[in-house]
Design a protein around this nucleic acid. Sequence first.
RNA 1: CGCGGGGUGGAGCAGCCUGGUAGCUCGUUGGGCUCAUAACCCAAAGGUCAGAGGUUCAAAUCCUCUCCCCGCAA
Length: 313
Amino acid sequence: MRIVFMGTPEFAVPSLEALLRSDDHVVGVVSQPDRPKGRGQQLVAPPVKLVAERAGIPVLQPLKIRTPEFLQALSSWQPDLIAVAAYGRILHTPILSLPSKGCVNVHGSLLPKYRGAAPIQWAVINGETETGITTMLMDEGMDTGPMLLQERLEIMPDDTAGTLAPRLAELGGRLLVETIAYLKAGTLTPKRQDDTQATLAPLLKKEDGLINWTMSAESLANRVRGLSPWPGAYTFFGEERWNVWRVVPSKSAGTDKPGTIVAVDKQSILVATGEGLLDLQEIQTANSKRMSVSQFLTGHKVTAGMRLGYRDV
RNA sequence: CGCGGGGUGGAGCAGCCUGGUAGCUCGUUGGGCUCAUAACCCAAAGGUCAGAGGUUCAAAUCCUCUCCCCGCAA
């Protein structure tokens, strides 16, 4: 079968690689354009593009996909099926209807839960203990199409979005190949999503990382995990910004105002939240690397009573 | 040339503006105290101040260039 693969970030790479190992023929890859990234604002190619080029597969990186030119290019590859994993754009009908076997999407959640751009992060943020991969036939909605295969994956207590994503990505690759095999065999019955059970996992923004200390310690801990490594949870210590990478919630009740540092010892900084205390374990200040709080404290003065979360203390 | 910060014994930092004896909190090692200790007390080791060039009687400190790291922004 002739397959066109559409995907962009690291998450999509195992899917493409799984297809490359399969019996089917990946005839072309579509990825987002190279974007300026990093400090020097250098153009950086998306991971999927790099893998495709190494495999000697033609790559398209259209700025806009709703153009006759792109549709023309796509149809010239004569795909029987388009496989999509975290491409980053919504596909419209002219594309969706192009391949005879349709467009199959690999989504990082147990649909209909967590439809949208950041399913992995939101599952962790909400403290889920399991998530998974769903393959589906795409329609014009945001992850609303009929489901094909689904497999569950446990979220470990110390998982972050960053540690969970590679496992899901691998599972996604495996499930994609299985899905295509079943589709070819014609033994798969697409299953409608129960829209009443649907939840959304919208794209995260940098501002979503700002810690709201009035939340419970438990919720904040999940948030820190879900936002790691991007966009990262952060707060303010006076004018100084702290990225917060690892925390441990404790149930101890406190009467201090949320954001107040209630205790500092050699290895930890205990902060009052809306409910319970949060023990900061790994932080990062501007200009320096992540470090354990014990390391941080050897060179910085932090004492109980100081406040976090406000620029003007 | 997107903006900005940084590189100082093993770790984290101060000192730099206003050149002139290498400092702080830890760690390490040895000793002491203690029923005991990750606690406390005493002592010691450990640094060509990222690298190169320049200014100067004198450079961690001022100037130029190079390398590496980080935050913002994307």
